[in-house]
Structure formats: C-alpha cells, structure tokens
Design a binder for these strands. Structure first.
Lengths: 336, 336
DNA sequence: CTGAAAGCGCTTACAG
DNA sequence: CTGAAAGCGCTTACAG
C-alpha cells in the first residue's frame, strides 16, 4: 500500500507539519530533524499525493494541449516541441484531439478546466470559438496560448507563424516560374486556410485571373490525402490539367501530397505538366517523389515558444509580448 | 470564482450531504428536494471538483498511454482507436512519449502512477522493462494493457497483433515472387523487430541464404525515414542493389518508405529492380509511389480492444482472456 | 525551529 | 429521506 505523510511522520518521530516542511523546503527545519525525515521518506519510498496537494495549491503541474487532429503530422511535430520544453520543467503534457470541430474543442477545453490543468495550449483553434468569445472567457480563468488561428482583437496570447509572408513567397515563386493558372486547395475550417485564400485571390486579381478554389473534406486529418487525390481525379473531368491549371497551391503538405498522388494517378508529370507547392514542411514533404516545394513553418520552434510562454504565464511573470511571430521560409525542392 | 458544493447547499437550502447525493445519484432523495438541488446546480453552473472526488474515490476517470514516438503514425493511429472508445465512456486519455527509451518509459509510467490514472496502456513497451519485472510490478498496482511487445511469461495483459503470421506471409510473398536475396531492415530496440528478425533468419536458412540485416537508428521516430534512405545509399557501395539484393523486408512502413526513397535517389526501379515490403499499413503506405505492399496490423482495432480491456480491468470485471490476438493481413500493392 | 488545528472540496458511514 | 461529523492526504497560518 502507498504511504502517507502520517506514516513518514510516525517513522521520523515528528509532526506531519514538519514532514510537509521538509518536502516543500519552504520553512526552516533543523538540519538533524530534516535528515531524520529524509531518511524516513527514503525508507518508506514515500511520494506525496499530488491530488491532495493540488486540492490546496490549485496547481497540478500539468498543461493541456488541444490539437485538431492527432494523425496530422504538423500537429504532432508542434507537440514534440512543446513536450521538449515542458519535460525539462517537470510539467506533464496532456494531449487531446478536437477533430477540428468547434463543439468538440469546447468540450476538450472544459475537461481540461475541470481537471485543473495549469494552462492550455491550443493549436490552430477553431475560428468559431475565437469569435464567439469562448476562448477569451477561458483565458480569463487560466493561462492560454494559441498557436496560429484567428487573432483579430481576441484577447489572449499567440504564437503565430507568419503565414501571410509564407503564402506570398509561395505565390510569388509560382508566378516567377511563369504560372498564371494557379488553383487553390484548402480544407474546410481553419483560419490558416482563410488567410491564404484571401492572399491568393488578391494575387489572382493582380495578374488578371479568376480564382479557382477547391475545398477538401476533413483538412486536419490524414484522410485528407486520400480525399485530395480523389478531388484531383474528379476535377480532371472539368479542367484540362496542365493547361487550364498549371500549378496547385495546397494549404498544407498533406493536401499537396494528395494532389501529387492524383497527378500520378492521371499520369500527369510533376513539375513538368503541373507544379505543386505545399505548406508546413512536415517531414513527409521530403519523402515524396518528387520532393515537395513547401513553406517551412518551423513547427518545433512554434511549439517551444508556446511552451515557454505558457510557463511565463503560469509563473505570473509579465509577458514581454502577447503575440509573437515566427518566420516562415520557402523551401524550394522538386515539385515546382 | 468557482462554486463549491457548499454554495449549492446554501442556495438549495439543504446540507452538502444531500447535494452530494443528488450529484452521485447513489442514495434516495425526495423528488422535490432533488429538483431544488438540481435547480441550484444549474443556476450556479456548478461542477464538482474532480480533484476532491478523486482524493476520496481513488478514481480519476483517466488513463495514460505511453507511446515510443508521437511522430510515428503507427502509434497515433492506435491512439486514435483508444480515444474513440474511451471518449464514449467519458474517460480522459493522456498521451506521453517515451522516445523509445527504457528509462524514459519508466519515468513516464511513474508519473502516471503518481497522478493516479485508473489504468495504463503501453504501446510497444521496451523489452528491458518487460524482462526486469518493472511492468509486472506496475501491473500489480494498477490495470495495465500492453499492445504488442515482449510477452513470454510476463504477468500482465496483452493485445497482440499476430506479427509472426504477418511476417511469414510477407516473407512467403517475396519468396513466391522468386526472391532469394532478401535483405532485412530493422530499428534498434523493439520486440517487434526481434520477432521478425528471428523468422527472417529461419526463412533464409531454409532457402540456403545468408541473412543480410541492417539496423537503422531511431526506429520509432519519423526521422527513421531519412535515416533509412541514407543507409540504402551507403549500402549501395558494398552491395550491387538489384542483384546481391533483390528485395527489402522493412520492419515498418516508415523504413520501407525510406528504402523507397533511397532507391529513387540511386535510380533503382521499384519493384522492377528491387522489391520492397513494409509492415503496419499506415496511411502513408498508400501515399508513396509506387504504393507499398505491406502487412496491415489493424491499428484502430488494436487500440479499441486495448481500451475495452482496460475498462474491464478498471471496472473489476474478470477478464475473459489476458491476451488477445488480432489478425494481420497482407496487402499487396505495387512495390513488390 | 516545531506542532496542533483548520481547511482544501468532496463522500460516506452513522444516526435519526 | 436527511444531516452532522469524520475523513481522503495534504498545506499553512497561528501560537509557542
């Protein structure tokens, strides 16, 4: 059976108060007494019950992370960055999957709140929950850091990747290559897609072209690859690929890979007949054939900075800046 | 501020005992009283503090899952299956990454123990911790289910995929295709690799060939793809690929993809010059070009069964069987 | 420096 | 059916 603080006190011949003090090291204890207590702790292999401590401290040494889809490597790579820094600080990281749905995201956050995590990191939160005030509400109760996501006049903390700049560079890269008939592939609900779409429309307007936009189901899950592939194949009935469309801008690498697969299926050569550019630079983008040109979001850094920020917030240090922007970088490989 | 049971009692004009009873529904309460309490709960938007409840109940309604690498899609797909069933039963699922190291795995498990999760699922646990009795020790304290992993005379619960059968079918498939010069690619430390290696050696012996075994670093992480690719390129100095070696058996799809990439790099045609077979059937295996022949482990089912099992264990029903075996299935695609 | 006591927010015998 | 009280395993004023 597990031992309690009382067992230790008995063993050391002191009060539980004293035991508590040596555990926490927050009050002076005579050296000799301390050593006796420490010996007892060691002998009984005692570990304080974190539930009891948390009940009093209102502190659990844990954070929650909500991701839109655990099978999307973009998110797992960001989580990797988060874990790296939280582990050093001896925090537990609890991951929960919202499946990219606003109601589910809400539920996952409320669960974390109930469990008294010390802070919450949201990766690519649902725009709906940003706009309806839910995230702000949560931010008043507990430290919150959002990685990407809708952020106009939302009072919370952000680590943003510079998706505008990344999108522009990607688009300009395609245009510099002589492409004008660029089609745009996005998923359903993510603010990241909206940012990119707006910029895309702007650029198309500038070069005097009608925008061509495709929306794939379930953009945050790995299934999106298959879905994009099917979309491309279907689309080939309406469009003369390689002519009506000479380039695809995909909102993430998963969709870009799907597009690549679609082209392969249709026997369309990439990049000779059609160019494809992705976004994120998940490791998968180097594994395709040809390798994907894409925009690196520095996912690891995104996660690390968010983790550092949440720690500052938890420890009540004033935040230097409520929103921080991470640079993106165009990675030119073989698909453009 | 958050409300407590006392606020509700005051609001409803009853004792906290009664409030507790309507919350838990474990004792009779007069209808009228109950309704008054329910109204108060609703009005104050009261949620019982789970920490306080757990302190008494020794129950947290949560489980821990330890994976060897969160960036490996095999594991995330299994976790997906686990989450699906736990969510229905209103359990929280906490995921932790051991990076495939025995000491880290131990630490993650101890953390879960400290936090009083109700059960732990280990995916592909480290052989070292199985052999040194650590996992058995943990299993005596708390419900444990292992998915795959070393299991000879280890007293705990298992959901195993039939890796032997899968390996045999894969090997026989290659041999039926006329391959004799089959090389074997594995990672460092996973029992799954050991099972496969033994079978591989046996088959090589039977067809009178020397085994050719390559070990890649960091087999549980996505980096393994890159590492395998490099390995293949290096290996091409020593071996005449397509002649000395006409087929690769890779212990998981990630390595198979790496091998595929290596061949592409070397301008070796798959499957014409060399055949490649993977294992797991992660979605990625359909995204390559050519698509991978592989062995499906039914990851979702693996996760679901483990989740159901841990629930039985937590709820103290006797387990029908301590180890359950899930069928594998050879999926023949284009790389062989 | 040390201990008795109150309290964190709940649950559950015990008594009525 | 209902409530006062003890208790889960800790921490922290308060008093000495």
């Amino acid at each position: 059976m597990k031992h309690t603080i009382e067992d230790v006190a008995r063993e050391a011949g002191v009060s539980i108060t004293t035991v508590s003090r040596v555990i926490n090291g927050n009050y002076p204890v005579k050296k000799e007494t301390r050593e006796r207590v420490e010996a007892a702790i060691k002998k009984l292999n005692f570990q304080p019950n974190p539930l009891a401590r948390s009940l009093i401290n209102k502190k659990t040494n844990s954070i929650g992370v909500v991701v839109p889809g655990i099978t999307n490597m973009f998110f797992t790579e960001v989580v990797h960055g988060i874990e790296r820094v939280m582990r050093i600080r001896d925090y537990d990281v609890y991951i929960s999957d919202s499946r990219g749905r606003a109601d589910s995201e809400k539920r996952r956050i409320n669960k974390f709140l109930e469990r008294y995590v010390d802070g919450i990191i949201l990766i690519d939160p649902q725009t709906e929950n940003m706009k309806n005030g839910f995230i702000e509400e949560v931010s008043q109760k507990i430290p919150v850091v959002c990685i990407n996501g809708y952020h106009e006049r939302v009072k919370t903390n952000f680590v943003l990747s510079d998706e505008e700049k990344g999108t522009k560079e990607a688009l300009e890269h395609l245009i510099a290559l002589g492409h004008k008939n660029i089609a745009f592939i996005r998923g359903e609900s993510s603010y990241s897609y909206d940012i990119k779409e707006n910029l895309y429309k702007e650029y198309m307007k500038n070069i005097g072209k009608e925008p061509v936009i495709f929306t794939v189901q379930d953009g945050n899950n790995i299934d999106v690859v298959e879905n994009t592939m099917k979309l491309i194949v279907e689309m080939s009935n309406k469009f003369d690929l390689g002519k009506d469309i000479t380039a695809f801008f995909a909102c993430n690498d998963l969709m870009a890979v799907g597009a690549l697969n679609g082209c392969y299926e249709l026997n369309i050569k990439v990049p000779d007949d059609i160019a494809i550019i992705g976004f994120d630079n998940i490791i998968l983008s180097q594994m395709t054939n040809p390798k994907l040109t894409t925009v690196d979001q520095n996912m690891r850094l995104l996660g690390e900075r968010a983790a550092e920020k949440i720690l500052e917030l938890i420890e009540d240090k004033k935040l230097i800046s409520k929103t921080e922007v991470i640079e993106t970088k165009l990675i030119i490989r073989k698909s453009t």
